[in-house]
Design a protein around this nucleic acid. Structure first.
Lengths: 137, 137
DNA sequence: TGATCTATAGACTTGACAATCTATTGATAT
DNA sequence: ATATCAATAGATTGTCAAGTCTATAGATCA
C-alpha cells in the first residue's frame, strides 16, 4: 500500500513550503535539497501543482514558488489529484472495467470501504494540519 | 495510492480460491487464466502464500492449491504481509529513518491516522467477507 | 539593451519491479 | 519402475515509472 513517488514528493514539497515564511519564495533547487528529491524530477511535480492552482510560480531574479492559498485551504486531496490520485482510487482489484455497486466484483464492497476512508482522510486534512508538527526536514 | 501488483494479485487469487468448493484443488495455470494474471508470476505469489501457511500445495497428479484454513480465518492483512505490506506501512513520507511519535516529521501525525485506518481495515476483513460478493471473475 | 536568473516543456535514459524461462523436485498413477 | 504431472527455485529478460538532459520562455537587474 503506497503513494506513488510523485504523490509522496508533492506532499513533502507542499508541506515544506507551507512551513516557510508565507511571503518567501523558494527555488526548486533549494527545495529539492531540503526535501531530498532530485531537482529535475521535482520541477515536473512543481509544474503540475502550479497548473492546478495551488502554487504561484515566478521566473527570473527573486523568482521561485509560493503558496497560492493559505495552508488551511489546501487539502491533501487537491495535492494528490494534481499528480495521480484519481486513477488509483477508481481501480478495481479484479481489473474489471464495469465493477460498481450494481455489478460488483467479489472484493468490491470491502475495497470500497477502504477507498472511502482514504478519500475521506485526504478531503479532511489540509496543509494547515501539518504546521503543528515538530521536526523539520 | 495503490497496492503493489503482487499484493493485488494475491488478494484476487485468495478470494477466487475461497469461492471454490472447499475440497477442490486448483492449478496455478487454471487460476492464472481465471483471474487474468500471468501464470509464472502468479506461481511465485502462490509460493509465498504457501510459505506463510495460508495455502496447502500438493505436487503431481491431482495436485494444486487449496486453502489451509477456513476463509473466515484468513485476514487480508495476512495475505498482504505474505507479499509486501509491512515495509510500505512503516514508511515515513519524509523519508526519515527516525520518524516516530517522539520525533515526528511534519506529516507524521496525519499520515499515522491513515496508516492506522488501513491496518485496521486489513485486520478486520477476511476472505469470509468476500464470499457474499456477487460477480465472479 | 543585454546579461543573468529561474521556470517551462518535453524528449531521452535508467533502474526497479513485473513477468518469463529453464531447470529440478516431489507426488501420483499405471 | 517409470512416465507424467504440477509445484519449487531462482536466473534471466522486459517494461514502465522514475529520473535526467537540452533547449526555450519569461522576469529582473544593471
Amino acid at each position: 500500500m503506497y503513494l506513488s513517488r510523485p504523490a509522496e514528493y508533492a506532499l513533502r514539497a507542499m508541506t515544506y513550503i507551507a512551513r516557510l515564511e508565507p511571503t518567501k519564495r523558494v527555488l526548486t533547487r533549494d527545495l529539492a535539497e531540503a526535501i531530498n528529491v532530485p531537482a529535475p524530477f521535482l520541477s515536473k511535480i512543481m509544474r503540475r501543482l502550479t497548473a492546478d492552482g495551488m502554487l504561484d510560480a515566478k521566473k527570473g531574479h527573486h523568482g521561485g514558488f509560493i503558496l497560492a492559498k493559505p495552508p488551511s485551504e489546501v487539502r491533501f486531496i487537491d495535492i494528490l489529484r494534481a499528480v495521480d490520485f484519481e486513477p488509483a482510487v477508481d481501480h478495481c482489484l479484479f481489473g474489471l472495467g464495469n465493477c460498481d455497486t450494481q455489478n460488483p466484483c467479489p472484493l468490491h464492497s470491502e475495497w470500497s470501504i477502504l477507498k472511502g476512508q482514504i478519500e475521506q482522510w485526504a478531503r479532511s486534512h489540509t496543509l494547515g494540519d501539518s504546521l503543528k508538527g515538530s521536526q523539520d526536514s
